[in-house]
Design a protein around this nucleic acid. Structure first.
Lengths: 135, 135
DNA sequence: CGTTACATTTACGTTAACGTAAAGAAGAGT
DNA sequence: ACTCTTCTTTACGTTAACGTAAATGTAACG
């Protein structure tokens, strides 16, 4: 059964990460490549995990959160016990993201109105403070 | 002319910041309270600047960016020479924020679809990777 | 004068996710 | 044997915006 093993460099090229990053994830117990002497060898499982890690990052999960999700599934395997917990974590994260986005949206509106309000933004900044500071 | 001078604590209470924060901003040359012996005294100008600093932070400017904006106005005072530059900076920042928000929006959509797609998200995470890891 | 309350300076600590430098090992090729 | 390339480990460096602890100062109250 061909395990489709890859070296660290092949992994880096395939996923667009650096060796440092792979070793870092390993140190953080997110991924567990096998050793052949000194060298790390990555199989299909490792690649799948890395893919999930990168996806998790795109979703804004921290590495620690990702590690926990992965660990739960590891402890799980046959039962789907923890699925509900995972679901909650994901929903929490989603809520955070929505909140963040809404705050950003507010700040954007705010800034935009400043930019329009006289075509020179921060002019208000100027008026109160720096006119006094210079005067 | 009443300078309406305030102590560091009054400033903290008024603006909801800590003394450490005010001293930090001073060390970073964002604000310049006068000394009465050892103690710092903040006047109207200082308060205006602090207000602007906090506003800038809400907009997502870094302290360094804020310092530069303030500095430009300081060098400016009578001419409006730098206004155009300030405007550009603000527009850049706005563009960054919009980009960030749009990325967040994408990630949110992505996550939402995962959550719906079987009511258990990250199930795909599971399938490929961890089933293999356990097996 | 002693205590209380608040001020000051100095400087190390914190967090995340790697970057980067140093130095050595191991295999391939000549 | 020598060299080249790629791998390895170890460990300090980076960034932002303060937090926090320690030692000291000083003004006011009683």
């Amino acid at each position: 059964m061909s395990e489709e093993i890859m070296t660290i460099r092949e992994m880096c090229d395939a996923f667009g990460v650096t060796p440092r990053t792979l070793r870092f994830y390993e140190a953080k117990e997110l991924i567990f490549p096998v050793r052949e002497g000194q060298k790390r060898l990555y199989n299909k499982t490792d690649r799948a995990r890395l893919k999930l890690i990168l996806r998790g990052k795109r979703f804004g999960f921290s590495l620690e959160e990702i590690r926990q999700l992965l660990e739960m599934y590891y402890l799980d395997d046959q039962q789907a016990t923890q699925l509900t917990r995972t679901y909650e974590i994901a929903k929490d994260r989603l809520a955070d993201m929505v909140k963040q986005r809404d705050e950003l949206t507010d700040a954007i509106k705010d800034l935009e109105s400043q930019l329009r309000w006289g075509e020179k933004m921060l002019a208000s900044m100027n008026n109160d403070a720096l006119r006094a500071a210079a005067g």
